[in-house]
């Protein structure tokens, strides 16, 4: 197994709740949104790690923590052994350059008043990627890489379709020659046939440039298609992580089982063995004690309500955070 590029250890992040005057007077305790509660994972050289979960589970927060858009309250992120949140590293831009993020909404992540050429050359200049004279050649090369016509450089973002904008976002990330790409719902806003084009481009670029990708998405079919490994997140904790094919073929955690069974099949006669999850994601303001999933779980036992399960390796599968992982039948 190749070495870990990013080592994420016990990262937790709580957003401070707002406190009104009334709360202060009535002595109501501050409520924090516990977005991440001790996430640990390794991102290995050259792999694609898919991250799935319901909205509000913390998958985007995790992506943002990795690129230092949020600072975690606890835990650490190491990039090739270097602590990215250590104080003396803060001003260091090389980390920003080597780990690039691509955002979900192609309509708001590009400056509407800059042409594609300006957007891309800004990235090149900030990181001093190449001498001024070589900028046009590099821009043309980037356009080639993401399969956009050369005249796209003169155009403004509003002149492009959603798929083309995501190509520009990819070009901007690639401009600074990163090692790791963090793709936060990169294709979620696109139509299925355009999605396919962008995914193909991403897979092709990964092969050619040897990129490592963290692919955050809620479309399970897509994640299964692009990922080598997959992590399932529930309420800011990883509940299962492992090889993509194994996890999708036989999920072990009851939450993964329910999540995967909810994806509608294309075959009208395959009604599936849908596992119905009762209720909704509990609020991250008020995470249930014990296993956070026990309120919706079909297999809960008294132990689940009091003791929080640790992520542990299960023979023949990935790592699972469930007290009953061995007993639960695979679906």
């Amino acid at each position: 197994m190749s070495e870990a590029v990013l080592e994420i250890r016990d990262v937790s992040l709580a957003f401070k709740g707002k406190r009104s005057l009334l709360d202060v007077l009535s002595n109501t305790p501050v409520k924090n949104v516990n977005a991440l509660n001790g996430v640990s994972l390794d991102l290995r050289q050259g792999e694609t790690l898919g991250v799935v979960g319901e909205s509000g589970c913390g998958k985007s927060t995790l992506a943002r923590c990795i690129v230092r858009l949020h600072e975690p309250n606890g835990g650490s992120v190491h990039f090739h052994g270097m602590d990215v949140f250590a104080s003396h590293e803060r001003g260091d831009r090389t980390y920003n350059r080597r780990v690039q993020m691509m955002f979900q909404d192609p309509y708001s992540s590009l400056n509407p008043r800059m042409t594609t050429g300006q957007i891309l050359s800004e990235a090149l200049r900030v990181h001093d990627m190449c001498p001024e004279d070589d900028v046009p050649a590099r821009l043309a090369n980037l356009m080639d890489l993401v399969q956009l016509p050369g005249d796209a450089l003169e155009k403004y973002p509003h002149e492009f379709s959603g798929g083309q904008r995501q190509r520009i976002a990819i070009a901007r990330a690639l401009a600074v020659e990163p090692e790791v790409l963090i793709a936060d719902e990169l294709v979620s806003a696109l139509d299925v046939s355009v999605q396919a084009q962008i995914v193909n481009l991403l897979l092709d670029l990964q092969d050619r440039l040897g990129l490592t990708i963290l692919f955050v998405a809620h479309d399970l079919r897509l994640v299964r298609h692009v990922s080598n490994r997959v992590a399932v997140i529930y309420l800011g904790r990883i509940v299962e992580i492992g090889d993509s094919e194994t996890l999708f073929a036989s999920p072990s955690h009851p939450y993964s089982q329910a999540l995967l069974s909810a994806a509608p099949s294309l075959d009208p006669d395959d009604k599936g063995r849908k596992i119905h999850l009762e209720g909704e994601l509990p609020s991250p303001l008020d995470i249930p004690p014990g296993c956070p999933f026990h309120v919706r779980c079909r297999h809960k036992s008294p132990k689940c309500t009091t003791e929080q399960p640790k992520l542990r390796p299960i023979a023949g599968r990935g790592s699972v955070a469930c007290h009953h992982a061995e007993e639960i039948e695979n679906v």
Binding site: S193, V194, R224
Partner: peptide
């Protein structure tokens, strides 16, 4: 174009 029943990490039809 829907990634179902295609080998993983192969180009999708678009």
């Amino acid at each position: 174009s829907v990634p179902q029943n295609v080998p993983p990490r192969t180009p999708l039809y678009s």
